[in-house]
Design a protein around this nucleic acid. Structure first.
Lengths: 203, 203
DNA sequence: CATGATAGTGAACGATCGTTCACTAGTCAA
DNA sequence: TTGACTAGTGAACGATCGTTCACTATCATG
């Protein structure tokens, strides 16, 4: 994306900070107070430049500043390819993506998360305490890692459907696959695991 | 949190959808159009109820609807403890948390992410392609998993500082630890790995 | 049957906000 | 040195928006 002047960057940072703090866009006069600009026209010039360069979209309504799609997809935690890259707006100008499970997976009714219990899937890279992001679906393809409810209890396993039974295969040689024949227990596929989020210690 | 009526839930959903789509809160009249309510007073009643129950905060300015802190912390991907729990507002009423790396780690200059290359940390649960969330710090405690730049190239390893050298230890028996003596190469600690985000296939 | 909560209509008022006009000043490349 | 761009001030206009008032309807509860 096109480079910004120092003042324009400050202005974009102020907009982002306001959105982060309050969840809504600032008015021209609020921005003026944050940037120490007395005239709404002075603020407007910066916003027009930011809109022209593709960072913002201006709507002619109250608090009508919207982030452009590019910026909206990039306001998570920046993925730095080159270590030299700075933060946070500088990174936008040579932008490589952002970590944000919400923008990665959306925040839709069919996406949820379950916590991984035990180490039965350790060889598939799922550790105890990981959050498995699941896309809800009534069935999944054979061999996929799925979240499954057995008699109402949720578990994450590799799923295989066969004639008259389903196999829930762990990914750990210390555990045996569980074969559930029809009628033995109520097996309900919750969905496919499409992501993992792990938190290591505290910040 | 206090339960909502069906109409109030629809109203909160409309506010969230507007925020998700445009990044800014709706006006009373916009909400009225979404909910098929002709009078701003009809809309206002719902918003007052939502504010009274702690879901929203109303400011007397244009587009002055803000989410409460509780709701703002919960608008990611819901973590479902009990499978019975619904989505998305229902889950709020017996809320267990939300996955959202931004709200988990904040979106601050000192937090960024690097992509894991290779399988040298596989036994620590880091797979190729994972995003390692890093809290920037000039040094880390011995034994921590750290992002380190060796001669400008980033890598993720277990970090040990010794007298006159540092050891970068992989977590994979197929790789040997790398001992870098002072002056041999420029080793710069980027920070500690505080999280992992993995995307498995597409949605 | 009354009461309170929920749900809604329609109109009007005043404050806020985006927009626009006219004017000033510094910087930098052609 | 002349534009072009950036960065401001100050004032004013009209549209939008939150607020408020008066009034109606439905429905469950005691």
């Amino acid at each position: 994306m096109e480079a910004l002047t120092r003042r324009q960057r400050k202005c974009l940072e102020a907009v982002l900070e306001c959105l982060r703090r309050t969840g809504r866009a600032p008015t021209y006069r609020e921005l003026g107070r944050m940037l120490k600009i007395a005239s709404t026209q002075g603020v407007r010039r910066h916003l027009e430049a930011l809109a022209r360069k593709g960072y913002l979209v201006m709507k002619a309504t109250a608090r009508g500043i919207e982030l452009s799609e590019e910026v909206r997809g990039a306001v998570g935690i920046p993925i730095l390819g080159r270590i030299a890259a700075g933060r946070p707006i500088e990174a936008l100008e040579n932008f490589e993506g952002a970590v944000d499970v919400v923008s990665m997976y959306g925040s839709y009714p069919e996406v949820f998360a379950v916590r991984v219990v035990g180490d039965s899937m350790i060889d598939a890279g799922l550790q105890e305490g990981d959050l498995a992001v699941v896309r809800a679906a009534p069935r999944v393809e054979n061999g996929a890692i799925a979240a499954v409810a057995i008699d109402g209890e949720a578990t994450v396993k590799r799923f295989h459907a066969e004639v008259g039974a389903v196999t829930l295969a762990p990914a750990n040689p210390r555990y045996a696959p569980r074969i559930v024949r029809d009628g033995e227990a109520e097996v309900r596929v919750l969905g496919r695991v499409i992501g993992i989020v792990r938190k290591l210690g505290s910040i």
